[in-house]
Nucleic acid binder design. Sequence first.
DNA 1: GGGGCTTACCTGTCTAGACATCTAAACAAG
DNA 2: CTTGTTTAGATGTCTAGACAGGTAAGCCCC
Lengths: 249, 249
Amino acid sequence: MNDMDDTETHPVHRRDGLALWRQIAGRIQSDIASGATKPGAKLPTEAQLSAHFGVNRHTVRRALEELSRDGLVRVEQGRGTFVAEDVLEYTVEARTRFSEWIRKHNKEPSGIVRQLREIQADRRVADGLGIRGGGRVVMLERLGFADDRPVCLSRHYFPASRLKGIFQALQSTSRITDALLAVGVEDYLRLQTRVTARLPTQTEAELLRTARNRPVLIAENVNVDRDGAIIEFASGCYPTPRVQIVFEP
Amino acid sequence: MNDMDDTETHPVHRRDGLALWRQIAGRIQSDIASGATKPGAKLPTEAQLSAHFGVNRHTVRRALEELSRDGLVRVEQGRGTFVAEDVLEYTVEARTRFSEWIRKHNKEPSGIVRQLREIQADRRVADGLGIRGGGRVVMLERLGFADDRPVCLSRHYFPASRLKGIFQALQSTSRITDALLAVGVEDYLRLQTRVTARLPTQTEAELLRTARNRPVLIAENVNVDRDGAIIEFASGCYPTPRVQIVFEP
DNA sequence: GGGGCTTACCTGTCTAGACATCTAAACAAG
DNA sequence: CTTGTTTAGATGTCTAGACAGGTAAGCCCC
């Protein structure tokens, strides 16, 4: 939307099986995701957009309705359509704390613990934690909210032998930082983050309140304490386009 | 929709501030809620509905789209529109057990305990339990799921003096029926149920994964043991239209 | 300067009609 | 009997136009 001009049309592909309104919704979404149109900015009016894409106004409205339901834009009668401010940009930094991330967007963080168990590490978790397969790990599954929107379904794995008492610590507090503090980890940093994307399982889609055909971002990361010892391996699942992951080196 | 005839129209109110498609969606929803159109049943075609209500087909489509998004109907191209089967009907009967209710819909019941405390009864709870205000009661707050969908946020109050050991019993099991059994209540029946509706609090909306502008049903009930002694007062909160409460005398 | 009115602009709703696409039943050919 | 084709009927998409209703800025009048 950064190269708007009302005279020239930016044609969409007709007869290719993908509905025009879906194409238009996708383009606007891309512009938001890429940062071309920033949160809070006003989109062109429906009339302008319909001229822009060379379609009827109703077709544009169908696209905007979809984006509005996804929470990507906010439509105000008599004023216009605006990019929603509450698209959470998840900046991957060395020091990443859930509550600080959410609060940076002026939202209230909260979370519910869905599972807390001591299990045997499978291959992937063992690799991440740098322990041998089958070792005991404490697993915490947690659903994180920003205000009342679910933004993150994460699983955290802690090496049980290295962090004695972590299970009890996690039982008494829902903040991971506090639990780690209770077992003597005063600070921790992110060593590595790997991001992929896939379609959500049904459970993930329900918990994160996202559509099953909309991909989720998977961020796996390894956290180390001040001595460089690995103390956590975590795998988070984030709904797009509500959450966007940004690397800032 | 039980009095369908294509020739006569069932006019909707124009110019009264409520959009036609909302009125139509409401009527269809009422027909589903009242049981006039049963789960799995086929709705009249869009053409029939538009003739029925005396509006354009697009207006009917707008209404059906809304109901479809709410999960109340299922639209299949080339076939028709059907009432969704997975709307949980909560039939109020004398013997009501959460897990049995969910299993009757071929779903897997589960629940998480959010709170378990011994507190003083406020006026409402004391009235429900038939004890004097300020008496000690054990309160259990629980979020119930059908498969992975939250369907019920409930608070259960037990008279601490009458049911000695109920606190410990509830700690060791999440099934209320089992806990009551442990303190000697082999069976219990529902004495009274009162149902109201209101908008959910933010927390309720979050937990039940429902919209804040969509009402929740509140069902308060009193359970008695075989001797007629009141052993529980419960207040449940159910998301509409995912859950519908049905009285069957 | 301030209050109230007008007006341009924008989204919301509804109608009318055309054609695409999908489904299932009826039908024909093998 | 089975397979393939046709066809009627259902939902999906798109266009065109009209008017309602909300917003904000500009204007006039006091």
